[in-house]
Design a protein around this nucleic acid. Structure first.
Lengths: 338, 338
DNA sequence: CTCCGTCGTCGAAGCGCTTCGACAACCTTC
DNA sequence: GAAGGTTGTCGAAGCGCTTCGACGACGGAG
């Protein structure tokens, strides 16, 4: 293992000079800097994270992610993967923490492990971890928007706008009755932020367009999806436009529709809020607002890096929803409605 | 942040004594030990990982996992979750590394981050990382069995026996022609160990029973699954027993069968090698050999902890396959065959 | 030509912890 | 009852790095 003193010797300077070249915290002559950097490269020097002891950077960030309960694994993994990849591109490694470690988990990890900053996924509207995050001596970026975001840096898809965008699209196609199939009730209870925002956007847009609307939380099981499909079709007026915000039931739900009668999109238009490739690879490619996991993760890391560099960062970054029309929505046919 | 000197002062001993109480590397009188431990508890002291500098434990382990390519996300996440949970129960945190960082990734992380040991998922038969792992000054546990496991600690489901077990079951039920639907060709090319072992077990058992057998690698897409289903049914002799070792196509494959004709299990018996809950929640509950993600992760962590404690650990831990009969297999009916 | 301010570099101290050698105190053993 | 062993504890050094204060060299101002 090559250490800073090796670099210093090789470059003919003192260790402190090498340190200052690395951190840029003191002026170093152009020539010395170049020599030091050359030595660093030829020796393949890499600072050791343990030295965060002395106030340095560890080049490690912590990612708090939901690992068990009620999350759609492929989606969660996509976020994680993009965070890890982005972090690596900044030379950082990633420590994972599970959601359920809660507030103490945050405390523990910042006290115990050399970690430069945190990224927290799946934030609740009134997440109990918020006070701790505000209080921490390290920067943090939330993926999701809690109700009170004072003193926090947040990034996420604009879920409210996403909900609206879906309804707008359905309204433009002439649909007069719409339904939202959302995540399971627990998620609303936990008050996961994005579920709430979609709901708000959905309702607001439906009202704005004067549409009839209903909301159906749905467990992430095929059976629940089938039950929800049946319930939807029995409604009066029967919705002709559906917004699905629940990746896990996308598949069984569309299949249930296929069995129960209404043809998609001829008789029933379906839009989803989900990762783009999921929407593409459905048996009927779904018109969807993309859940930009890759971009969100990347943005979160970028924000964290800028915060670490001492730059000011925007408190909120809302990613604009992009609706892609695929095969699952069509102009409303037939009369009906009420 | 309370540090070791605080504890020492509070207990009326020197810092080194506290350290020895913690590490047990020197005898400490019963009375002193108790006093120190009391102080540790009341002050809520937690050693800082950065101090691994001085030779201590960091209480961090690295998990190398496949994050993008061709893995079944829910299964991968299950492994990861079990590793993280088990690690936490030993007071360790987990740093994730992606598969594709390869050998240098291992080097980097052990040089750079205070990490006590490694767990490596998804090992190839001739994984290029093996030399590095052997060479490292830290213990490592592999999930999976490479061809040459000298000097390595490995744990995994006995995939060979799992393949055999499925075929045995089908043979017992009177099936004379069986087919294996495996992971995509890439996986065989990368020589991911478990795919090879299932294949071996499948072939060996089929030969032993004198069954006709064919092998069908299959992409992880619904389209590929449908194509595979059609190909299977056109074969001559048509297989009446199928072994599926590819979680991603489980669903579309069974559905394709449902459409194309043969009734499961009356006309076609299907067994799977997959996580138990996946098998249970299929529309026709699948007879399966469970992929024990939770147990495997736990075992891997246990082995690592024992290695860290200096205890000798078994070089190989093979988990015996457990076949659970559910609704997708039945005694072969009808005549046919050739 | 001196004085002072800058610039660039260095040495030393210290981060929280472990570990080595030392050393009292006590216990055997002849 | 002195020699030799144990046992339990301590002090100090050091891990790789950062940072603070110091200092020599240089240049511009007076």
């Amino acid at each position: 293992m090559v250490k800073i003193t090796d670099v210093a010797r090789h470059a003919g300077v003192s260790p402190s000079t090498v340190s200052y070249v690395l951190s840029g915290k003191r002026p170093i002559s152009e020539e010395t800097r170049r020599r030091v950097q050359a030595s660093i490269r030829t020796l393949g020097y890499r600072p050791h994270a343990g030295a965060r002891l002395a106030g340095g950077r560890a080049n490690v960030l912590a990612l708090v992610m939901p690992l068990w309960a009620g999350v759609h694994a492929p989606t969660a993994l996509r976020f994680a993967a993009s965070v890890v990849t982005a972090a690596r591109s900044y030379g950082h490694d990633v420590l994972v923490l599970t959601q359920d470690e809660g507030e103490q988990g945050l405390r523990r990890v910042t006290d115990t492990v050399p970690v430069d900053g945190l990224i927290v996924m799946d934030v609740g509207l009134r997440d109990p971890r918020l006070p701790v995050l505000r209080d921490l001596d390290r920067p943090a970026v939330l993926i999701g928007f809690p109700a009170d975001r004072a003193g926090l840096t947040c990034v996420d898809l604009d879920f409210r706008a996403a909900g609206e965008r879906c309804v707008d699209h359905l309204a433009e196609l002439g649909h007069r009755a719409v339904a939202l199939v959302g995540p399971p009730p627990e998620v609303y209870v936990r008050r996961t932020a994005c579920a709430q925002y979609v709901l708000q956007g959905f309702t607001a847009a439906a009202d704005r367009h004067g549409l009839t609307s209903t909301v159906h939380p749905c467990e992430a099981t095929a059976a629940a999806a089938r039950a929800t499909a049946e319930r939807l079709l029995r409604e009066h007026p029967a919705p002709t436009g559906i917004v699905v915000h629940n990746e896990a039931v996308l598949e069984p739900l569309t299949e249930a529709f296929a069995r129960l009668g209404p043809r998609v999109p001829e008789e029933l238009s379906v839009t989803a809020i989900c990762p783009a490739d999921l929407a593409e690879s459905a048996r009927v490619p779904l018109t969807s607002v993309a859940l930009p996991a890759a971009e969100t993760g990347l943005r979160a890391v970028e924000l964290l890096m800028r915060a670490l560099a001492g730059e000011p960062v925007p408190a909120t970054t809302l990613l604009a929803p992009v609706l892609t029309v695929r095969g699952s929505t069509a102009r409303r046919t037939g009369g009906g409605g009420v």
